[in-house]
Amino acid sequence: MPSTRPPTAKPAVRQRDSERTRTALMTAARALFSTQGFANTGVRDIAALAGVNSSLVGRYFGSKQGLYRETLAQVLDIGPLLQIDRRQFGETVVSLFLGAHDASGPLAMLILSASDPEAHATSVELLQKQVIAPLARWLGAPDGEGRAARLNILWNGLLVSGRLLPIQRLSEGLDTSTQRWLAAAIQSVIDEGAT
């Protein structure tokens, strides 16, 4: 005789949202790597901040080093800067850097990686591959790579002196004359190739 009891509902299977988990881990990793450094940040710290199980770092990235590589590769995206009109490049870049609240995040990640040889090697590799090389190609002849290095020096100087290790003169931001000087210095590197 068939049962008269209503069928029991199967519990809903919760689907994992892998993209959301990856994003949460990378966001947490960026926050911690850019404030505590690579060596002082543990997988459990990252997972706790992301609100996920620490085993997911290994599943999605292979290791803490793999997570560092992918996070740094994401934040070292120079593509948007290469869309700026060359004639206004200096002024636009200074405005962007001064307006961005977390512009020093990638630089902090790079600097704070120095105490770990493997993370430092990754930092140097990705800086060259994702910033200097594309910028050098965009700048073109003459001396695209040298000019890309000079721009990197100017940008890093701004971010270190203004955000990471602020000198008193810059603690309230750049005054107008310093902004004009920096924009002109950046623009002069851009204009070296114009003939």
Rank of each mutant, 00 (worst) to 15 (best):
A183F: 00
S55C: 02
S113K: 05
L182P: 01
V75S: 07
G66T: 09
L72G: 09
W138Y: 12
P142T: 10
R86V: 04
S161H: 08
E172V: 09
A9H: 07
K10L: 10
W155R: 08
V52D: 02
E91Q: 11
L56C: 11
P166Y: 01
S55I: 05
L56A: 02
D175W: 02
S18W: 02
V94H: 00
M109P: 08
R150M: 12
I190P: 04
G79S: 15
I186S: 00
L127Y: 12
S54A: 15
L127W: 11
A136H: 10
Y60L: 15
A149W: 01
S63T: 10
Q187P: 03
W181C: 02
S188D: 10
V94R: 00
G105C: 12
R69I: 12
R30M: 13
L159Q: 07
S95Q: 12
L49T: 10
A183N: 05
S54M: 03
E118T: 13
I84K: 02
R86Q: 11
Q128N: 15
S113T: 06
L32K: 09
P2Y: 05
L72I: 13
S34A: 14
T122P: 01
P134Y: 08
S18F: 02
I153E: 10
G37M: 14
R87Q: 14
G193Q: 02
R150W: 00
L96S: 07
R30K: 10
E19V: 03
Q88D: 11
H101W: 09
S115R: 15
D143C: 03
L49S: 08
K10V: 09
A48K: 13
F33I: 06
L72V: 11
A119W: 08
L67N: 04
T21M: 14
A136S: 07
E172T: 12
Q15A: 13
A50L: 12
T23K: 10
H101R: 15
T176Q: 13
S113A: 15
R44W: 01
F97D: 05
A73R: 13
A183W: 00
T92C: 02
A136E: 06
G58P: 06
T71Q: 08
D116E: 13
I186D: 00
E192F: 02
I84A: 01
L72F: 06
A28Y: 06
G58M: 11
A148M: 13
A114R: 13
L159S: 03
Q15G: 04
R87I: 09
Q128E: 15
L126G: 11
Q187C: 04
T41L: 06
R44I: 12
G173L: 12
Q88E: 11
S34E: 12
S171F: 01
